[in-house]
Amino acid sequence: MIAPMRKRPLSFYFLAVFFGLFVLFLYGPMFAIFILSLQGPDGALTFPVRSFGFHWIASLFFQQQRIGDFGAAFQRSLLLGFIVMAVTVVVALMAGLAFRQKFKGSSFIFYLTISSLIVPSVLISLGIGIAFNLIGVQTNWYSSALGGHLTWTLPFAFLIMLGVFNRFNLSYEEAARDLGASEFQAFQHIILPLIAPALIGVALFGFTLSYDEFTRTSLISGARNTLPLEIFGMTTNVTSPALYALGTVTTVFSFSIIAIAFLAYGFFAKRQQP
């Protein structure tokens, strides 16, 4: 630098320290779990780390009986996440398309949808449980819990799609129709490619909200647990670093999902802009 740097004000240092503490608080616990999971067979639940090794991560995959039904719970949560994601994307997209025009009762439906975000999650879970009980249907992860997750993901996704279509230039569609495209062709060739990046965001959002959802699932997952419920159960009866290994593996998985989503987003955004 040729020009001398201007002296930074005191507030810069104060805010920098504050931000540092924030980051530490955000990621510190995760790193503690990450480090504690990489121990040898003599590892314990607390610091100090006794030896380095992948013993507990390996134990997740080869000694399931010791740490509960982790594999099956993971599969259930994964599958549920994908179902929630698919339903969320399709329904939010169609709702977004519908809400581009004002129709009779549109604001009522809007508030009805959004209010699900305000009601305490436990009450929603309880309500769904009671309703299932009342009609005499067993609660299950793929029925009642799926519904519970959608009460959480759909309003969020709906809000995002409203914002997306708010900024969407209607003349693109008009031009497409003018050039001979049917409603479906205009959707397929013009609307869908233009909003694809936003849809990927909605998909990622839907998946992660479902994948780590605890409260709304807690009373309605039925006989078999989703992964967050299973992990919560383990904290009370698993006394080895296998618990931390589980945390590490699921975190790595979450990050890879985010990475895939960003790659896809980049791909579509690049196609859209030069």
Binding site: A175, A181, H189, I190, Q272, Q273
Partner: peptide, 24 residues
């Protein structure tokens, strides 16, 4: 119709824009 702000499809090339009507 030539639209006021042209309404050119931003995700398509010039060639694809001109081709669109024929394709449809």
């Amino acid at each position: 119709m030539v639209f006021q702000n042209y309404a050119l499809f931003p995700h398509k090339t010039v060639w694809q824009n001109v081709e669109f009507g024929l394709k449809m």
